[in-house]
Simulated scan of single mutants.
Amino acid sequence: MSAPRAPGWATRTFLHGISGWITLLTYLFMLAPIVILIAFAFNAGKSTVVWQGFSLDWFGKVWSNRHIARALHVSLIVALASAAISTAIGALAAVAITRRQFPGRDVLGAALAAPLVLPEIVLGVALLVFMSFAGVTLGYGTMIVGHVLVSIPFATLIIRAAASSLDPRLENAAADLGANEWQTFRMVTLPQLAPALFTAFILSATLSFDNLVMSTFTSGVGTTTLPLRIYSMLKLGITPEINALGALMVVANVAILLLVMGRYLPLMLKTNRR
């Protein structure tokens, strides 16, 4: 004889099933525009709503468009530079906050997280006013500074979470063996933070590459990023060329995601088994 089921068992089962379907439908609703964008990137005609046949011509036009190539070059330079700076500053700040006691530590942590709660348009306007007051010409330097301002809180939080979980006994053992602080940081702390550093770098680079608001206020002549170029193209209407460019960006993002998962997911699973 089977044991009696708890009261409300059928209701809970029904709600669990419904919640699963709602979650699935929500994701499908969110991903549907991306699927439609990629599909019409292969449209032979210029229409973005009427299918007129399969073609790869729009990808060729994107590849040969010198304005898009120039904007992509600018975006890559700014993204890599700002990600490297954000990761470096975030690593130093995270280690200092989690490993050291010094006056103003809480203030430093709050200052690093402040850009998260401030509207980005406010940060962009403030930085533009400051650069104008200081007489700084807008260009690569101002864009990198602006993107670092936006991405450094994310890099710091990621690395700080990893640094707080490190075993201090390893650093003490290195000191007992004669290593100074720099050697301990370089040979003991830094290797343990490598996954977090890589994650912070990828996230910072992605935030910088996709940034539109801060780039609008800090870009100068000859430093138009890819999002700004796409925004200017949209003013003339949505074309399959924009769809093709969007499809290429989606493929690039998926490739980066697979790279990160392939590099660090086995390590994370191995750590969890332990």
Rank of each mutant, 00 (worst) to 15 (best):
L203P: 06
L149H: 00
L166V: 12
L193G: 01
S151E: 00
L177V: 11
L170N: 09
V125K: 07
G146Q: 02
A155N: 04
I158D: 04
I202E: 01
L203Y: 08
G124T: 06
L112D: 07
T142W: 03
G146N: 05
A126S: 15
L203V: 10
G139D: 07
M187I: 08
N172L: 15
L166H: 11
G109C: 03
F130L: 14
T189V: 11
V107N: 06
Q183I: 10
L157N: 03
S165N: 13
V117W: 11
M187R: 09
E171L: 12
V107I: 13
A200N: 05
E171V: 13
V122M: 13
E171R: 12
N172T: 12
A174T: 13
D167A: 08
A114I: 05
G104K: 08
L138C: 08
L170I: 12
G146R: 04
M187F: 13
A174Y: 14
I121M: 06
L138K: 15
P103E: 03
R160E: 10
R105Q: 13
Q192G: 00
E171S: 15
T199W: 01
V150W: 02
L127I: 13
Y140E: 00
A110Q: 12
V150Y: 04
S165P: 04
A155D: 00
L157P: 02
S132P: 02
G109P: 07
D176Q: 08
P191G: 05
V150S: 03
S132Q: 15
N180H: 12
G178C: 08
P103W: 11
T156H: 10
V136Y: 15
G146C: 04
A162L: 06
R186C: 09
S165E: 14
G178I: 11
S165W: 06
I121W: 05
R186D: 06
L118E: 11
A179W: 11
F154K: 00
A174K: 12
E171W: 14
R186Y: 11
F201D: 01
S164W: 04
A196T: 06
T189A: 07
S204N: 04
A175P: 07
A174F: 15
I144Q: 06
S165R: 15
L108E: 03
L197Q: 01
S151T: 10
S165G: 14
A175D: 08
D176R: 04
A162E: 01
F133P: 02
I159L: 03
I144L: 08
F185T: 05
L108N: 04
L203W: 01
L170T: 07
G109L: 03
V150E: 01
F201C: 06
I152R: 04
I158L: 10
T137K: 14
V125H: 10
V122K: 09
N180T: 11
I144D: 00
Y140K: 01
L108G: 05
G178W: 11
L149D: 02
L116N: 02
T184Y: 03
P103K: 10
V107L: 15
F130M: 12
A134F: 10
F198Q: 02
P119D: 05
I202C: 08
F130C: 06
V125R: 09
Y140C: 01
D106H: 07
D176S: 14
I158P: 04
R169Q: 15
A175M: 14
Q192I: 00
G104Q: 11
A111C: 05
T137G: 08
